[in-house]
Computed example of a mutant assay.
Amino acid sequence: MTLNYLEQYRRLLSIAEAGIFYGKDPFDKERYEELQKLSLNLISHLGNEPIEKLENIIDSSEGYPTPKIDVRAFIKKENKILLVEDLTTKEWALPG
């Protein structure tokens, strides 16, 4: 049986990120952060990449580790276009 180490390390990293994102208990979050560091270290050694580069990639992503997909709709009726206000940015956008 051939082990795909990168796939397994990435899975460990995903579990750690989910735990950090959803964890409520500070002690659990601390353990997930340690698991994240260990996973990044293993991936770094396997891929011969500096760990700082991997940490930058992880730091730039937000939320649960899944593909981020956005769907919007263009709705026009009687020469009017439906827009919604973003609660965070207060900008107007297509509903989605």
Rank of each mutant, 00 (worst) to 15 (best):
Q8G: 13
E30F: 12
R31T: 07
H45I: 09
Y64K: 09
L40T: 03
L54P: 03
G19H: 00
I69L: 15
I51H: 03
I43D: 01
A18V: 15
A16L: 00
E34V: 04
F27N: 04
L40E: 00
Y9P: 10
E34W: 06
H45M: 13
I43T: 02
L12T: 07
D59W: 03
S44T: 08
R10P: 00
I58Q: 05
T66A: 11
S61Q: 13
P65S: 00
L35S: 05
I15S: 12
E62G: 09
A18P: 03
Y9C: 02
K68W: 11
D70L: 15
D70G: 12
I51K: 13
L54K: 01
K68P: 14
E55R: 08
E30V: 07
Y64E: 14
R11H: 13
E30C: 05
L35E: 04
S61D: 08
I15T: 09
N41Q: 12
Q36R: 06
R31W: 04
L46T: 13
K24L: 02
F27A: 07
L35Y: 11
P26Q: 01
N48Y: 05
N48H: 08
L13I: 03
N56H: 12
Y9G: 02
A18F: 12
K68T: 15
V71F: 11
D70K: 09
P67T: 07
P65K: 00
E7K: 04
H45Q: 15
G23W: 02
E30I: 09
D59S: 14
I20H: 00
E17A: 09
P50M: 01
S60H: 10
E52Q: 15
R31K: 08
S14M: 01
E30S: 12
D70H: 14
A18E: 09
E30A: 12
Y9M: 03
